[in-house]
Simulated scan of single mutants.
Amino acid sequence: MKKALCIMSGGMDSTLCAYMAKKEGYEVVGLHFNYSQRTQDKEKECFYKICEILGAKTVEIDTNFIAQIGGNSLTDRDLEIRKTMSDEVPNTYVPFRNGIFLSIAAAVAERYECEAIYIGVTQADGSGYPDCTAEFIKAAQKFINLGRVYQSTVKTPLINLSKADIVKEALNLGVALEYTWSCYENGVVACGKCDSCRLRLKGFSKANAVDKIAYAKLS
Rank of each mutant, 00 (worst) to 15 (best):
Pro130Val: 02
Pro130Gly: 01
Asp131Asn: 05
Asp131Ser: 05
Asp131Val: 04
Asp131Ala: 04
Cys132Leu: 06
Cys132Lys: 05
Cys132His: 05
Thr133Asp: 04
Thr133Asn: 05
Thr133Arg: 12
Ala134Tyr: 08
Ala134Arg: 13
Ala134Ile: 09
Ala134Glu: 12
Ala134Thr: 11
Ala134Asn: 07
Ala134Val: 09
Ala134Lys: 12
Glu135Asn: 15
Glu135Arg: 14
Glu135Ser: 15
Phe136Cys: 04
Phe136Ser: 05
Phe136His: 05
Phe136Leu: 03
Phe136Asp: 03
Ile137Asp: 02
Ile137Leu: 09
Ile137Ala: 05
Ile137Val: 12
Lys138Thr: 06
Lys138Gly: 01
Lys138Trp: 00
Lys138Asp: 05
Lys138Pro: 02
Lys138Arg: 09
Lys138Glu: 07
Ala139Asn: 08
Ala139Leu: 10
Ala139Gln: 09
Ala139Ser: 10
Ala140His: 02
Ala140Ile: 02
Ala140Cys: 04
Gln141Met: 14
Gln141Ser: 13
Gln141Lys: 13
Gln141Tyr: 11
Gln141Thr: 13
Gln141Phe: 10
Lys142Ala: 14
Lys142Arg: 13
Lys142His: 13
Lys142Phe: 12
Phe143Asn: 15
Phe143Met: 15
Phe143Arg: 15
Phe143Trp: 15
Phe143Ile: 15
Ile144Leu: 08
Ile144Arg: 06
Asn145Ile: 09
Asn145Asp: 11
Asn145Cys: 10
Asn145Met: 09
Asn145His: 10
Leu146Glu: 14
Leu146Met: 15
Leu146Lys: 14
Leu146Thr: 14
Gly147Met: 09
Gly147Phe: 08
Gly147Lys: 07
Arg148Cys: 14
Arg148Ala: 14
Arg148Pro: 11
Arg148Asn: 14
Val149Tyr: 10
Val149Thr: 13
Val149Phe: 10
Val149Ala: 12
Val149Ile: 13
Tyr150Ala: 00
Tyr150Phe: 06
Tyr150Glu: 00
Tyr150Cys: 00
Gln151Trp: 10
Gln151Pro: 07
Gln151Glu: 14
Gln151Ile: 12
Ser152Lys: 06
Ser152Glu: 06
Ser152Asn: 06
Ser152Cys: 07
Ser152Thr: 10
Ser152Leu: 05
Thr153Ser: 09
Thr153Arg: 08
Val154Cys: 02
Val154Ile: 13
Val154Arg: 02
Val154Gly: 02
Val154Asn: 01
Val154Leu: 03
Val154Phe: 02
Val154Lys: 01
Val154Gln: 00
Lys155Cys: 11
Lys155Thr: 11
Lys155Glu: 13
Lys155Pro: 07
Lys155Leu: 12
Lys155Gln: 11
Thr156Trp: 02
Thr156Gly: 03
Thr156His: 03
Thr156Ile: 06
Thr156Pro: 03
Thr156Asn: 03
Pro157Gly: 07
Pro157Glu: 07
Pro157Arg: 08
Pro157Asp: 08
Pro157Leu: 07
Pro157Ser: 08
Leu158Thr: 06
Leu158Glu: 07
Leu158Arg: 08
Leu158Gln: 08
Ile159Met: 06
Ile159Gly: 03
Ile159Asn: 03
Ile159Asp: 02
Ile159Pro: 02
Ile159Trp: 03
Asn160His: 11
Asn160Ala: 12
Asn160Gly: 05
Asn160Gln: 11
Asn160Ser: 11
Asn160Arg: 10
Leu161Pro: 05
Leu161Tyr: 10
Ser162His: 00
Ser162Ala: 00
Ser162Phe: 00
Ser162Asn: 00
Lys163Met: 07
Lys163Tyr: 04
Lys163Glu: 04
Ala164His: 01
Ala164Arg: 03
Ala164Lys: 05
Asp165Cys: 01
Asp165Arg: 00
Asp165Ala: 00
